[in-house]
Amino acid sequence: MTVPTARLESVAERPIALTPSSRREQAATVWYHLRKNPLVLVGLIIVIVWVLISLLAPTLAPFDPLQQDVSNRLQRPALFDSSQETDEEVTDATTHLLGTDELGRDILTRLLYGGRITIPAGIAVIIFGSIVGTLIGSLAGYLGGMWDEVFMRITELFMAFPTIILALAVTAALGSDIRNAIIALVVVWWPNYARLVRGLVLEVKTQDYVEAVRAIGAPGYYILLRTILPNSFAPAVVLATLDIGNAILVFAGLSFLGLGPEPSSPEWGKMVSIGIDFFDQWWMWLFPGIAIASLVMAFNFIGDGMRDILDPRTR
């Protein structure tokens, strides 16, 4: 039996139509909460700045991130070292504001380029992890019964492994590069989403409007994809945004352990791990470390604020 799609949508997806004035009210509410949670604003600004820096890295960076200059290796950061001003060698155009690494590559340049790897990697982990998790969780919740049991036992199995240990095992087996590090993190990331989405689907499944769509005669996949999922998606999206910081942190950890991008790549975790061998040349590990921390912190500021906004109990 064919079902007029337009009618289904009007039943399923727009239980309450948003009038223009309520949209304006929504915007006002958002602004109100942003003002009450300045940390969210700070977080947003930091994230936007990092994204812009990453996009514009080739124009902003004073050097080439891979260009070696062994005669200028391990230079102290010019920014913090006034004694260098008198040094005749540094008076030319080759000042390295944040110093150079063991091969004479400019730290500042590599920092600016680092976000181009870390930010997409973190987002990719979240996107693929949430897709896999949503798929499994929604099937478990919608089908119920035996399928629910099977899917959820598998999910618990993966949750019982500590994140980095499982990721270590996977990257070690696949070999270490960026793609495999992302795959490893997706393997450890999806169970959270599977659990969350299953719970949401179970809740939405019993709503009257789902019953209404079923009464019209819509097929199962339609009910799941067009009616249940869109209505249970919001919390998963929220979890996803809160989670990007975590994903970036674990990705940096993996790459710090040597299980991420190749050694020469200007990735922050990698830079810190190389910097450890040059412990006294603190600029080699401190700046990339702070870059990771600032970005993760910004995401956590946003996440923390969002949680406050959404959960009135902690206000």
């Binding site: 940096a252 950890g253 810190v272 450890i276 702070i290 921390a293 993760v296």
Partner: peptide, 9 residues
């Protein structure tokens, strides 16, 4: 938010 390795260093 701080990576463990940064705190350690």
């Amino acid at each position: 938010s701080f990576p463990v390795f940064l705190l350690a260093l």
